[in-house]
Design a binder for these strands. Structure first.
Length: 175
DNA sequence: TAGGCCATCTGGTCCT
DNA sequence: AGGACCAGATGGCCTA
């Protein structure tokens, strides 16, 4: 994987200018909307045998499409904020270069694993009492610890940390 | 220039 | 019914 430092990207957002426009200019937005739809390969879409669920006029359909594009954009922004928050709590050595999403998830997973095995080792295998967790939550936790205990018999916490550390460095070198 | 990563658009499906 | 979620497609930016 590559280490990247990105500048600000300037992307053309059709919906933003379209939604901010006067109603009379929505026809232009609808034109933009249909232009992109035309480009898409109809063969590549999943075949649907269903009749059209919502028989709206093309203008109305396009307005709804633009609205849902906006919602989807907001949703992705929230997701990216969550990724950023995760990046900030994972110790890594690429302070100057942003971790990619896949790197973030992989490191997070291994970081949690190494912390869990450390906690397990320090607590001598005793289950910590988790406030507010019901019986089902407790059994999940227990299952998890059982699993971790089994793993830790095969692998020392130090080994887990070593693995995590190695991974951090391999990301740094852009493997 | 190829390849990786990402943002955005899009339509189908699921959920409330 | 309408919004949320998802996955595929597309195209831009960046680095090796």
């Amino acid at each position: 994987m590559k280490a990247k430092s990105k500048g600000t990207k300037h992307r053309h957002v059709v919906a933003q200018d379209a939604l901010g426009q006067e109603p009379t200019q929505n026809s232009e937005a609808a034109l933009k909307c249909s232009r992109r739809t035309e480009k898409r390969n109809p063969e590549s879409r999943k075949a649907s045998t269903r009749p059209a669920k919502r028989p709206w006029s093309s203008k109305e359909r396009c307005m709804r499409r633009l609205e849902s594009n906006e919602r989807e954009r907001q949703r992705m922004h929230k997701l990216n904020n969550a990724f950023q928050a995760l990046r900030e709590v994972i110790p890594h050595v690429r302070a100057e270069n942003k971790l990619s999403k896949i790197e973030t998830l992989t490191l997070a997973k291994n970081y949690i694993k190494s912390l869990t095995s450390t906690v397990l080792r320090m607590s001598n295998g005793h289950l910590p009492v988790v406030e507010g967790s019901g019986s089902s939550g407790r059994s999940k936790l227990y299952e998890h610890y059982q699993q971790q205990q089994q793993q830790s018999r095969e692998e020392e916490p130090a080994e887990q940390l070593q693995k995590y550390s190695t991974q951090i460095h391999s990301f740094r070198q852009g493997s």
